[in-house]
């Protein structure tokens, strides 16, 4: 939890460039994430936070730079390949299988980790007790046990955000990317989900984009501040809170 746990970083982003046509969304962006920590990424809208997520998770390949994950260079690895290295993400705009039940959403997410299971065509999915046990555990962890048979599209907004996190957790990642997990949640859901996120760092590293500053300052081990595609500061929460450059660029204007 403290800054002294400096080992080999789980993720190294080295001078990442991403451009959309003429627009340079990220320029020479570098950062690293330590294992078993919560690392928050903050910055005003349009700073390039989600673009950085997309570049790191393989959704959009960077035009320059290098991504090293857990010792593997994954700069050009496909998005689904990175999942098997131990990266997993939730989406800023909820992205679920709306027509399927909550339990089936989670089962598909767990099944994805058992690579061979998805190719089984001669029997039903029910045979795998280990997978359904894992689904039950995830339902409990994301407070969705009572909603297992609800269609994901019929869940409340908070419920859908929880399921979003649950599906990312199902991959048993070494690093989980959470893109605004608290966005639009009610006060009770925020409190519960905050507890869930801070409990994760015992099992994995968390890279978090979040606008709720009180939560970010409270649970993060380290905070990187972005503005206009660049890193303007990186430190522990106590230092970030008082950093004049950060206050000018971000905290001062919105919080």
């Amino acid at each position: 939890m403290s800054e002294s746990t400096k080992g080999e970083p789980i993720l190294i982003a080295d001078s990442i460039d991403v451009r959309f046509g003429d627009f340079q969304a990220l320029s020479g962006f570098s950062m690293s994430v330590q294992p078993a920590t919560i690392h928050a990424l903050i910055g005003p809208n349009g700073a390039g936070k989600t673009t950085l997520f997309n570049a790191l998770t393989g959704v959009r390949k960077p035009s320059g730079g290098r991504v090293v994950f857990n010792g593997h260079t994954v700069t050009h690895a496909s998005a689904h390949r990175r999942v098997h290295y131990g990266m997993s993400r939730s989406f800023q705009v909820t992205s679920l299988f709306s027509a399927l039940t909550v339990a089936e959403n989670l089962r598909l997410a767990v099944q994805a980790r058992h690579a061979a299971e998805g190719w089984v065509f001669w029997r039903g999915p029910a045979r795998r007790r280990d997978i359904s046990d894992e689904v039950d555990a995830l339902l409990t962890e994301t407070f969705l046990t009572g909603r297992a048979d609800t269609r994901a599209g019929d869940l409340s907004h908070g419920g859908q955000r929880s399921l979003e996190i649950g599906m990312a957790l199902a991959g048993r990642p070494k690093l989980i990317f959470l893109d605004e997990p608290l966005a639009g949640m009610g006060i009770d859901d925020v409190h519960r989900t905050k507890g869930l996120i801070s409990s994760l760092s015992s099992r994995m590293a968390v890279l978090l984009i979040e606008h709720n500053m009180s939560v970010v300052l409270d649970i993060s081990d380290r905070i990187t501040v972005m503005a206009a595609g660049r890193k303007i500061a990186e430190d522990v929460p106590a230092k970030i809170r008082t950093d004049p450059a950060v206050r000018a660029a971000y905290l001062g204007s919105t919080a």
């Binding site: 998005a79 992205s95 029997r123």
Partner: peptide, 28 residues
């Protein structure tokens, strides 16, 4: 049989939401 199998469930996942299926790690 195929539709009701784990393989069929992956096909349904792709039909419902392809980007999410990729993000889960399926080689779509």
């Amino acid at each position: 049989r195929v539709i009701a199998s784990p393989f069929g469930s992956v096909l349904a996942a792709i039909r419902e939401n392809e980007p999410r299926s990729i993000a889960l790690g399926y080689a779509v």
